[in-house]
Simulated scan of single mutants.
Amino acid sequence: MPKRKVIHREKPKEKFSYDPKKVLSKLEEYGRSVLEAIKSGKNPYFDIPMRGLNNVYFDEKSRLIKMGDKLSRRYFLNVAHARKFMQTLLIMAYVKRLVSEGKHASLREAYYANKHTIPGTRENTFEDQRESDPIIEDLERMLGVLREEMHITADRRGYIYGDIVIRDGEDEFNASKLGSGGWAVPGTVEHIQFPEINVDYALVVETAAMADRLIEEKFPKKENALIIATQGQASRGVRRLIHRLHYEEGLPIIVFTDGDPYGWYIYSTIKQGSINLAYLSDKLATPEARFVGMTMDDIKRYGLENVTEKLKGIPPNKKGGPTGDYKRILEEMEYPWFQNREWQRQLKLALKWGVRIEQQALANKSLEFVAKEYLPEKINSGDLLP
């Protein structure tokens, strides 16, 4: 094993401070503009940044997927717009009440709280949550804030384990003293504080099974690491937590996923953001994150040829191809942030060999191999992909 490379925590780049007064101020500003338009006999409207691929671009300087400047205008006195205009005002008023009272609501609760029949009609304000969720996303883009800052949360997913002290309201605890299950990341992490951090870096792990394995092998203690289990695609709460730990606390971020197009996409969203949430990349993405594995090189380096899985779908050189995993890899090869020699080589090898490799395949060596050899060897030698 190579000599241990000391991983230094970086100097914090920012300090986050959530101010509910700013959210309320923005809401009141929109409310006043609508009222003034009505008083002056004008048609009230909202300008909403457009969602979708045609209003998204990759910013080379910040290395983030960002939203463009295209807007759609939503009028009150327009038959095609009136319903959504009304729904927008309803949700804005609801958010104002939540923030003012210091209460939080789930996406589902926000839907039911604002669903009712309009007096004198048979029309409901909302027929389905598929109507209210997009309105909340519209507000995020209009106000330039996270929905969590509007006190609207989603289901929680993911957990952390390691020597880090967390202050959550009146509670303060160490995430390594809560049993092997660690601390479940809540839907919103805006109010969380970190009084004490005694780790060198955060290791973001795709599967809960692998995170559990590392905890059982005492990897966090031996390697002075914080484990962040995403349990699949990282939730907004987990991505925001990763962002805050890096930019506010200076923790280096290392990502460990399966060696397949889905795992690589998980890394991509943590690092650069996503098209759907391009308007939140500067609050959710962490461009300085590095990738430890699994890689195609790992297959031969560690003798894992017999425990690979075939890529799903039809290869590009076969009739009807490319489909499935092959199509996804070709798409990822076109991502601007994968336009470097290291990643292009990995993706081309996956296509050439037609295989993928899961984290759990390392158990073929031994249960302890991933914690005692694989990760320490690669991380301590700096064998990481950009």
Rank of each mutant, 00 (worst) to 15 (best):
A175E: 04
F369P: 01
Q359K: 07
S176I: 01
K300H: 14
A82Y: 08
G181R: 13
Y201E: 03
V204I: 15
D168W: 02
D19A: 03
E101G: 00
L304V: 07
L89K: 09
Y302M: 02
E216S: 12
N43V: 10
N306F: 04
L251A: 12
G259Q: 03
G313N: 09
E109D: 09
A371V: 09
R141D: 04
H191G: 04
E36C: 00
E149P: 01
S132V: 15
K300E: 14
E127L: 12
I215Y: 03
K177L: 15
E332N: 00
G320F: 11
R108N: 09
R32I: 07
Q87E: 15
R157Q: 12
G237A: 14
K84Q: 15
D325K: 03
S40V: 03
E216F: 03
P49H: 11
E29P: 00
A208W: 01
D260I: 07
L385S: 06
R213T: 13
F16Q: 00
E223L: 05
F338H: 14
Y201H: 10
A371T: 05
R236H: 09
R239C: 11
R239E: 09
E217R: 15
Y262L: 06
P49V: 14
G259P: 02
G263W: 06
A371S: 15
K3A: 13
N54K: 13
S366Q: 07
R74V: 15
D212W: 01
N198R: 14
A154G: 12
M86D: 02
D325E: 05
I136W: 10
P134C: 02
K352N: 14
D383I: 10
V355P: 02
A154F: 01
P261V: 03
A278T: 04
Y94L: 04
A289P: 08
N124W: 10
R301H: 05
Q272L: 01
K327F: 05
E170Q: 10
D133G: 01
L77H: 07
T188K: 07
D258N: 14
M50F: 03
L143N: 05
S72F: 11
I228L: 15
A80L: 12
N124E: 14
M50K: 15
P287V: 10
L330A: 07
E331I: 04
T230P: 06
R213W: 00
I65G: 02
R356W: 03
W353M: 08
N55F: 07
E28D: 13
